[in-house]
Amino acid sequence: MKTLVVDGLTVRYDDHAVLTDVSVVAAPGQLLAVTGTSGAGKTTLLWAMAGLLKPAAGAVTVDGAALRDRDHAVSEGVVLMPQDNGLAAILTANENVQVALLAGGVTPNDAAQRTADSLEKLGLTGQAEQLVEEMSGGQQQRASIARGLAMHGTIVLADEITSELDAQNRQRVIELLQAEARRGAAVVFATHDPEAAAACDAELHLVDGRAELVRG
């Protein structure tokens, strides 16, 4: 498995610094919480970790190699579960997961099995053939999580993925993220939920784009 290192990261939108001199390590087998209020920079940090944003200063590296872009991140096994689920509304839950796997080079038989397993873990077996546009917000979010988990990433980035979920499903997702860490993945979970953060091995707290607190 692989280690993702954020070293002195600064990210700017136009002339405004959204992150300033942030450093943290996402290590294999560890579940890292990124916390902070809305606008603190949590999503920006995960997007930079995913290769979607270029640093104005500092670096994001995977096993010592600087991330060039999203394609490079994907080749390194960096999986991003976005807050807005990113699903194709006109496809079923099953199709959304399988398409992502097939695009990543998974064989059709393996894609079908991994899709079924992942949807089952999220309690969505009964909704597998349902169009995403016909699913509730919570079901859509769980389908998006199922897609991300099915990718078997070496680094898993989860951005506020429990925001639409009830208490039971929120706990289910936290346990699945913990299982990803036990599998050996480096897992980063951006959340505003103190209970969810407490279930993680370590915590990076952001205030106005700066790292104010690190636990673990």
Rank of each mutant, 00 (worst) to 15 (best):
V132N: 00
A65Q: 14
V6R: 08
M49R: 04
H72G: 11
V78D: 01
Q141Y: 02
A89G: 11
A89V: 05
D15P: 00
R68K: 08
L119N: 05
E129G: 12
A40H: 06
L53D: 06
G41W: 04
D201G: 14
A112I: 12
L204D: 00
Q140H: 02
V6A: 11
E180W: 06
A186M: 03
R70M: 11
N85P: 09
P194C: 01
R170N: 09
A17T: 05
Q83V: 10
A185Y: 02
T3F: 01
K2T: 15
L124N: 01
Q98Y: 03
E212G: 14
D117H: 09
S75D: 13
Q140R: 11
Q113Y: 12
A59F: 13
T61G: 07
A211Y: 05
K54M: 15
P194G: 03
A65C: 04
K121M: 11
V156A: 03
D7S: 14
E164V: 01
L102H: 10
V207N: 13
A26M: 01
R147S: 01
L19I: 12
G104I: 02
L165Y: 01
M135C: 06
N85I: 14
A143M: 11
V5E: 05
S118Q: 03
R215T: 02
D110S: 11
E180H: 04
L204V: 08
A211G: 08
D117M: 14
G8L: 08
V79R: 14
L80W: 03
E134Q: 14
E134S: 10
L102F: 07
V106N: 07
D71S: 13
V173N: 09
E76C: 15
Q30E: 09
G8Q: 09
V99A: 05
H152Y: 09
D117I: 06
V74Q: 09
L122W: 00
A116E: 10
V97P: 00
A27C: 04
M81N: 00
P108H: 03
V99K: 05
H72C: 13
E76Q: 13
T20D: 08
N85A: 12
E203M: 15
A198D: 06
G29D: 01
G184Y: 00
G209I: 06
D208H: 11
A56G: 04
V18P: 15
Q168N: 10
A211C: 10
E95C: 09
L176S: 02
A65K: 15
V78M: 09
V78G: 00
A59E: 13
G184Q: 08
G8W: 07
V106M: 08
V62C: 04
G123M: 07
V97L: 04
A150F: 08
W47H: 04
